[in-house]
């Protein structure tokens, strides 16, 4: 319990900012980071769809183990992993709790375990891929897949600007607190504090919106000076921008190993299935 409290106390603006900085600018030396981003996206799509097609627990456990190994290799920040586990456990816990309430039994828990396992596989796959990929490479890969240019630009812009925007919001929020008056009485369940906090958080958005509007105009003007819209609609310019994306031997090897592992998992799964016995009512 103490441990959990310690973890929860770490979730504040500073930690999130550092976490984001790390994702946006951190050194990428892990296996997944060195892959061609296009291969990584295909790999991800594979694991986002496959778990939905199986109800056989052996296959799902196999995929989960494979994901956990990859997660361990990718050195994911413990904070992100903790948040993921916390979310999954509480979600399943609530559903089981209410199911028992309606006269269900532990078969409900078994059924939900399959479901939770599917969700976990998908979440781990996304964490492994997206916290390890360079935003620029990611957005270029999407561009290659013919995703609209504005969206691709949005991704690389978002990764770079976010820490600055958080800083700005924090400054505005703190200056509101400095000039504002903290409620003297607590009220029932400290509702006055909560109300004060919420009102300040909302009001701080007023200058924030105006500042961001100005900043956005500057950004877009600077982009247009460099010929952003023209370049994005010109096939030659696009080709030049994306020419550095190349698949190497490493990518082929990675996809090959994944394929072999998947076939092995599915084969073992059909040999030794663990399936939920269905109780007819």
């Amino acid at each position: 319990m103490n441990r959990i409290r310690q973890w929860l106390s770490k979730i504040n603006v500073e930690t999130i900012k550092i976490e984001l900085m790390n994702t946006a600018y951190g050194e990428r030396t892990t296996l997944m980071a060195k892959l061609d981003p296009r291969v990584a996206i295909i790999w991800y799509l594979l694991f986002a769809i496959l778990p939905w097609l199986f109800w056989n627990n052996t296959i799902l456990i196999g995929m989960l183990v494979y994901m956990v190994i990859l997660t361990a290799l990718s050195r994911i920040s413990p904070l992100i992993l903790f948040l993921l586990c916390f979310g999954l456990v509480t979600e399943a816990g609530y559903v089981i709790f209410t199911a028992l309430f309606f006269g269900g039994d532990l078969t409900a828990a078994a059924a939900l375990l399959t479901f939770t396992m599917k969700l976990t596989i998908i979440s781990l796959a996304s964490i492994v891929i997206f916290t390890n990929m360079d935003p620029e490479r990611f957005s270029d890969a999407l561009l290659r897949f013919k995703v609209p240019e504005t969206f691709c630009f949005g991704i690389s812009y978002g990764y770079r600007m976010l820490p600055i925007l958080i800083d700005e919001y924090q400054n505005i929020f703190n200056s509101f607190r400095l000039r504002g008056r903290f409620p003297e009485k607590k009220g029932v369940l400290a509702w006055r504090y909560v109300y004060h906090f919420c009102v300040t958080a909302v009001k701080a958005f007023y200058p924030m919106i105006l500042n961001t509007a100005k900043r956005t105009r500057t950004t877009v003007e600077a982009l247009e000076v460099k010929g952003f819209t023209y370049g994005m609609h010109n096939p030659e310019a696009k080709e030049l921008k994306l020419s550095y994306l190349k698949t190497t031997k490493k990518d082929v090897l990675f996809l090959g190993i994944t394929g072999v592992v998947l076939i092995a998992i599915i084969y073992t799964g059909t040999l030794y299935p663990i399936e939920r016995t269905i109780h007819q009512l």
Partner: peptide
Amino acid sequence: VGIEELEAVPGVPESI
């Protein structure tokens, strides 16, 4: 879709 034969698991549809 995610849970096969959902109606056979007592309690889950209501709780959801």
